[in-house]
Simulated scan of single mutants.
Amino acid sequence: MKKDIPHIAIEFPDYFPDNFDEFIVDGIENELLDLRVERKEPTAWAASEWIIPGIVAVYILKPYFEAFLKEAGKDHYLLLKNKLNSILAKTKNMNVNTITAKETTNKIDTSNTQSKAISIFIQTKNGIVIKLLYDNNLDLDTWQQSTIDFLHLIEDHYENAKNNSLTEYLNNLEPSRNRTIYGIIDPDSKSWILINNLGQYEREKMNKN
């Protein structure tokens, strides 16, 4: 993304059909909205699969919430929720294969069922980015409803920061240079679980197994 921070940025591969750009902006274009849509060449990553952005990556950044959660912008926030539901529906059944160098093939986590097709990044008031992950084992309705639930939470975080569970969670984080938190949907409660330390999570997961 460019150095100046837009309201929303959406990235997807340059090989997607031409009409995908139109699909992305349809319904959310607004003269007050700084929306960046970018086609990108496939990139090699030397990182955990959770860190790698989805094939379609949506970034909803702090300037958007500061500008569009005001009364005059609330209608657009509703349009954005509908658009995210449409993007989730479009990407739900995309098949994405992870290609690795021969010497790193054994490092792929075959138990990882999080979608590689879509990720949504949401920036909090203090600049931390929460990457929402979507488990392929969950149905589309769960993906969509959980996303709406999180958007309600982030809305409350911006408007009622002192009495908000997300704000409380962020305030209790240990200082870290890592400014990204990962959100996964609990398959039983359908609520979000936030993970600040991937290494610790992996160790806990291995211990449980």
Rank of each mutant, 00 (worst) to 15 (best):
N82D: 07
A47T: 10
G54Q: 00
K70H: 11
M94H: 08
E71N: 04
Y64A: 10
E41Y: 09
K74S: 05
L80C: 03
T98S: 04
K74E: 00
E49R: 07
G54D: 14
R39H: 14
P42C: 01
A89W: 05
L79K: 15
N97R: 04
Y59M: 03
K74M: 08
V56A: 07
L80R: 09
A67W: 15
K40F: 01
Y59F: 10
M94Q: 10
F65H: 08
L61M: 15
F65Y: 09
H76I: 15
K40Q: 12
L78F: 15
F65L: 08
E66P: 02
I55C: 06
N95V: 11
A89I: 13
E41Q: 13
T91R: 03
I52K: 03
K92D: 14
R39G: 02
N93V: 08
F65T: 13
P42F: 01
K62H: 02
K90P: 02
D75N: 01
N85S: 13
T43G: 05
L88E: 14
K74P: 04
Y59P: 08
G54C: 07
H76V: 14
Y59G: 12
R39L: 07
L69V: 05
P63E: 12
L78Y: 15
K90W: 07
N82C: 04
K90A: 14
K74A: 12
L69N: 02
I51A: 01
A67T: 11
W50Y: 06
S86G: 05
K90H: 10
A57V: 00
Y64H: 09
T100Q: 06
R39M: 10
E41P: 07
K40D: 06
F68P: 07
I52P: 06
K83G: 01
V56S: 09
T91P: 11
H76N: 14
T91K: 01
E41F: 07
Y77N: 06
V58E: 01
K92M: 07
E49K: 04
V58R: 02
L78P: 02
I55G: 04
W45F: 07
A46I: 09
N93Y: 04
L61T: 05
F68A: 04
I55D: 01
Y59H: 13
W45H: 15
L80H: 14
R39K: 12
I52L: 00
N85D: 06
L61I: 13
E41D: 11
I60W: 00
R39C: 09
L88K: 02
D75L: 03
V58G: 12
M94C: 07
S48C: 09
K83T: 01
V56P: 10
I60T: 12
Y77A: 10
G54H: 01
L88D: 11
K83I: 01
